[in-house]
Design a protein around this nucleic acid. Sequence first.
RNA 1: GCCCGUGUGGCGGAAUGGUAGACGCAGUAGACUUAAAAUCUGCGAACUGAAAAGUUGUGGGGGUUCGAGUCCCUCCACGGGCACCA
Length: 847
Amino acid sequence: MYNFQETEQKWQHAWEEAKVYAVDAARKEKKPCLYVLEMFPYPSGRFHIGHIRNYAIGDAIARFKRAQGYAVLHPMGWDAFGLPAENAALERRVHPRVWTYENIKAMRTQLGPLGFSYDWSQEIATCHPGYYKHQQKLFLQFLQKGLVYREKATVNWDPVDACVLANEQVIDGKGWRSGAAVERRSLDQWFFKITDFSEALLQGVEDALPEWPEKVRLMQKNWIGRSQGLTFSLRIAGQAERLDLFSTRPETIFGASFIALAPHHPLAEGLAQTNAALSEFIRSCDRVSTAAADLETMDKQGFATGVCAHHPFVEGKTIPIYVANFVLTTYGTGAIFGTPAHDERDYEFAKKYDLPILPVIQQEGADAPLPYTKKEGAMVHSFFLDGKTVPEAFAYTVKEAERLGVGKAATFTRLRDWGVSRQRYWGCPIPVIHCAQCGVVPVPEKDLPVTLPEDVSFDAPGNPLELHPTWKHTTCPVCGQAATRETDTLDTFVDSSWYFLRFCSPRQEDGPFSAQSVQQWMPVGYYIGGIEHAVLHLLYARFFSRALHACGYPVPDEPFTRLLTQGMVCHPAYKDASGTWIFPEEVEKRGNTYVKRKDGAPVQVYRSEKMSKSKKNVVDPDAMVRTYGADAVRLFILSDTPIDRDLEWSEKGIEGSWRFVNRVWRLAEQVTSAPNVFGKADPSATEAFLRVVHPILDRTTTFYEESQMNRAIALLRELTTALYDAVQAQNVEATALQGAFRIWAVLLSPVLPHLAEEIWHTLGETTFVVAAPWPKPDPAYLIQETVEMAVQINGKTRTILQVPQKATQEEVLRAAQEVQNIASALKGKTVERTIFVPQKILNFVVS
RNA sequence: GCCCGUGUGGCGGAAUGGUAGACGCAGUAGACUUAAAAUCUGCGAACUGAAAAGUUGUGGGGGUUCGAGUCCCUCCACGGGCACCA
């Protein structure tokens, strides 16, 4: 049996010794440059299979591209700031820094036996001052450019623990530790002006990212969410001010039966000053988390203010104003009008508060049930709009509103500015100082980095930086008076918005990255990571590139040319009789039931889902590598499931991969141990053999090129079988067979790098297979002489004919009519026409 | 609730609108073996049939087309994201 430990270790050492992945060396050879990057991990302590999948994909691509002659930058690093380190500090009384660096060390060790082709000299960690000092400088440059500002924003506030909660820490509206009902609280926060780039980001998604998955582009587009509409400006009965309402359906204004304000709309807050009940209602709206999903699924509630606004077009008509918990302050003008007949939410609201429901769009033919939300039909009950189509009515409403001065065409985006303030310890300090005299003062460059204090306590609730006895106290760099440091740290998404630039020149001291290396490597050719990052991380990174560009850095607008999004790794979950989750390795299948390996007690099986610690449906990558080797694990991960789909982890599957690895090894053994396998040459057998090998080479190359690893691997299995057959038949010319073995080794190398290396050297090569050029198919062997054609009657396949590749319609027709069941099926029928697609089908259309 | 996906044999999956099920897993029969494992060879959608062959089949329903897994409409189920998890 194949001794994978020995082979894999041998080549891992050899690669390391020869520094085969050293990027600087490759770069010096003046090869074309390519940047292959997997989303860098959070150092949680252990890798799970999902990470390994991510890296196996990236590594196969990196190796394939190296063989194609590229200098490949393939780095690894750590997204090292974040909440879990603080949780560890709370739970285990370990310093976040110590915990993080220990995790990094453990995880780096974990990767060793997998043999990934990283150049570890490029490693970075975002929690290192050498990284975040540059980030602080970038923050200050953004500030100077006007891309950063400070404003009030709502956060989840835990009144018992006196701290801000992440959405994740809010469970059913309660703080995860204290269990206290969460409140919304308004705090001064730092923002990045991502909305300055809404238009550019949208344009980029539409025009500049042809190699991104369509679904991700669509998600980004919807996230930016540009919508065109009209802002009505209405007179409020008995008040001097006007009320602005944004709507994307202004043509439905004649069906409006209420106006709804966001709870913190200035008008609502103004009215609340003299209305205790309203004030209480607004407070009650604050007792929800800030998560959009919570806001939109909560019970829709409104409060009638008793105030009305004048209809923009109908003299003397007024519309009642409500304050409603589902209206967002952050979108449009924070105030809407509701047309219950044509909007689901408005309909629900009108039913609840007994408001009129007046249809203003008449659907042709049958009466559609209300609410009718489509834009087809003619306007009714709408004065000057009557009879118009919806799009016509939209345009006319805008025109009329502008003519009468009651409204203006407007475009809003759903995208909001990016709030980057976090009231936490384990993050990059925001390098500003608050001075009573001078206001917000940037920390001078010579004083960067602002580092985190080491002696920090997590005993008291709240932000440890805020509570630290001395850290925040400093003097104002401008006036020299006593002043305080900003105690907020930056969102970790900021760290991950430019790390790919730092990777280009990770040891650069003056400046975040060198212009030369960025020009050489950027944009990232292949960016590979989980689909869960389809919106936020990728949008922030795209924003950051543009912001850096605006600050004068030579950074491309679009940082990632090609994006590959991988699905999750899933496994069934198991519970024992006592109702606790148990690990898959504790479970055994006996017959048709699942039992505990230890005592045979029955086990409840749950549907396969994303691996998670809480359900214990996880598989330890280390154990898998120990049992089957890195090559088999990689093969299994890549072999069946396309990379963008969820992967079902199965014990049987990995065993199957292990068997294939052995099959490959046995064939390699035969190549050396029995030189006489290259027996008497038979020219026609040799030719037939090459007509199998070269098309496989051609198609495999295409599949690798398209990152369809599962299909490439299916062909590798076919090639392996073809080689076995040739060796057994002993009739293929020696040089042809030798050549095929070389092709085989190189084709295997992106997936089974260790074994491929072994085969390569077995074949007498002295260089590394990772440096071998990718073979090219010989076109002479790609042409098929005969093809199979389907003969159909009315589109149903009746027989399959073997015909010459260039067969004409007449020839195929004649051949087809000689086939018995075709002839009998056509007997007594008239052929109305025949459809002939060369090399594909012949279809008789009969009546 | 909103946005985006996914759905094909017992299972993972393959299929530029043109032979549905490549390749593999599990199964099964045979070879080798004292035996088992490993390995090798064969068979495999369902139904009818001795066979030839036929009928039905890509989540459900409808449509476009000579021809639909693929395109359109609609419904269902499951998954991801929703701005402080990373």
